[in-house]
Design a protein around this nucleic acid. Structure first.
Lengths: 338, 338
DNA sequence: TCTGGCACTCGCGCGCCGTGAGTGCCAGGA
DNA sequence: TCCTGGCACTCACGGCGCGCGAGTGCCAGA
């Protein structure tokens, strides 16, 4: 186990390195933090920390930089979450309250997160799976063609075309619409399949084919939407990454374009609070030199989607975690109100 | 006026520079293109071209590179549009045909354009202004709260909440829905205002307030949607920009995040065919070292939105223009079918 | 266990210089 | 008048050598 002082040294190294972006040496450390010991002592501690794999030297006779393992220890044990100041919180709230619809909420959230953290922001659209149905609408476009519109409690709207096996009268349509809504309105998506399976039986034989088609389209929409959408922003912040650019930034941009990758990334974080994945902890190779800070958010008490930021492993973890947590909280509020 | 040969020299310079990314000298030119004259002659021509401002030297005793003006002449007079090959066209068509809904069409188009041109692709969602209304739906969410859903012929769906000044009965709602649709279904957005202005008069005095509110929300939706959405992709291609990275790429990324900027960029191109804006021709400062190749596309014969790519001024104009034009054509077909 | 001292390492920045691609100009020839 | 070959000149680029100094490891003494 590392002594108290060595942990202090590690914390100081992380803080300095995050601030200066340059390897930190023993002398500079003792000058900037009053550790109460001499550089020589710190050197011994650093040697020990290096043996344990928490820090490393880019090359002999240079200062030390934290390793992924070092950041991990820092995040887990040495640093808290830095809360937002009151003015910052007010600014967040004001900015988000101006949103007019769901798209706008997500767009504003992305911008906000990117600005606050000066990193790349990723916001997942509120997921359908845990949402409830607000309304299902059926429109007749042609004798044998319907449009199915699904409206969720988060304000999201999905539409699908339905080609009917047989013409479907207006009366039947109104009937189906009414029955469908009385069964599923206000219910959770997960419960919908069980609630509608016997619905075709209530109709005349000639209409059953169409009813079944409509229902399966509805269920399909619920499932398909698990391939959820997300919005990213603040990619310009990647330019602050480092000096050895092209090599670092390219794989990150590529990863960010793969929505699948990002969704997986966000999905993996199971922690109820803020989750941090550092460097090689990220499965995707292109993100091996980045850290992902994410958290769930939702309209009720329950999380329905995730949001977070992607930045260099050398990032201000306490500040970033604080910003991510605060934004998630306020987005949740906004969603609950609308 | 420039002689025939000098134009040939300019064309050769552009082609070589686009290929090699390095300033091109007189000797290399005569070797790679059989111009039928000696390097010395070419040198004289180059001096003349430089006087006219078509090419420039990065520094004394280096080769020449085209200026924005040089590229402009190249695009206008010296190069055609390189058509896609048959296999390429088939690939485009196949890829786009797999799309399941409007979002998917746009997403696939972006990916496709980015891959074909190896540049940043920008695709505007089909605009509402020139579209027609397919259906307007009204749903009652609470006694004095309605949801307005607008469905367009391009398959786009917009929804808005409406808070009514007074409770609005189901019968009135059905009446309004029917009247509204009979008037506006199939009509162009631009015509809608004139078609509905006298609608409140058909209702009882107590309902008129609500009807007016609904109508103004509808009109607002049509107008507001002029702040159209777009999707971008292929930003990883920016890493191929040049060697002097951060300075070049940063403003571009920033500009790409400003949807307003991009929409203006696309909107400015009035040409019915492919439009090219080179370097400083772009109003936005961050895009001064990029060229934008854009074109309108649409479901009918008429253009309803734009798409294009953003890349370094040093790009393969004929190829890029060909790809952009081809993709626009096929997207139009897909939209017309659905 | 901590400290001051000391010898050692080695990346970085700087200046120097040779190389070679490229240029402008000029005089002679078609 | 236009093209050509020749010639002197320019100057960015890359390699080399070197001194500086931050930083290290180790050791003897408190």
């Amino acid at each position: 186990m590392l002594s108290e002082r060595r942990l202090k040294v590690l914390r100081a190294i992380v803080q300095d390195y995050v601030g200066t972006e340059e390897p930190v040496g023993s002398k500079a450390l003792t000058e900037r933090h009053n550790l109460g010991v001499s550089p020589a002592t710190v050197r011994n501690d650093m040697a020990a920390l290096e043996d344990e794999g928490f820090i490393a030297q880019p090359h002999t006779s240079a200062g030390r930089i934290p390793t992924d393992k070092g950041y991990r220890l820092f995040v887990d044990k040495l640093a808290g979450v830095k809360p937002m100041t009151a003015p910052e919180r007010r600014a967040i709230q004001n900015f988000l309250e101006g949103a007019v619809d769901l798209d706008d909420v997500v767009a504003r959230t992305v911008r906000l997160l990117a600005q606050l953290t000066r990193q790349v922001a990723v916001v997942q659209y509120p997921s359908l799976t845990r949402s409830t149905v607000r309304h299902v609408e059926l429109l007749s476009l042609a004798p044998a063609r319907l449009m199915l519109v699904l409206i969720t409690d988060t304000g999201r709207v999905e539409q699908r075309m339905v080609d009917c096996p047989a013409p479907f009268g207006e009366a039947s349509l109104a009937d189906l619409r009414a029955r469908l809504n009385s069964r599923v309105a206000g219910r959770r998506f997960a419960d919908v399949p069980g609630l509608v399976e016997d619905l075709p039986e209530a109709f005349e034989a000639e209409d059953r084919g169409t009813v079944s088609t409509v229902l399966s389209t509805l269920l399909e929409t619920l499932v398909e939407e698990n391939e959820e959408r997300l919005m990213i922003g603040g990619t310009a912040n990647l330019t602050r990454f480092g000096h050895d650019f092209p090599l670092t930034i390219r794989p990150v941009l590529e990863a960010l374009e793969e929505q699948v990758v990002l969704l997986k990334l966000l999905g993996e974080a199971k922690d109820p609070g803020v989750t941090v994945r550092i460097g090689h902890e990220n499965a995707h190779e292109g993100l091996n030199s980045t850290s992902v800070v994410s958290v769930g958010y939702g309209s009720g008490g329950e999380a329905v989607a995730k949001l977070g930021v992607v930045g260099p492993t050398r990032m201000d973890y306490p500040g970033t975690m604080g910003a991510v947590r605060a934004v998630a909280r306020y987005v949740g509020q906004i969603l609950a109100e609308s």
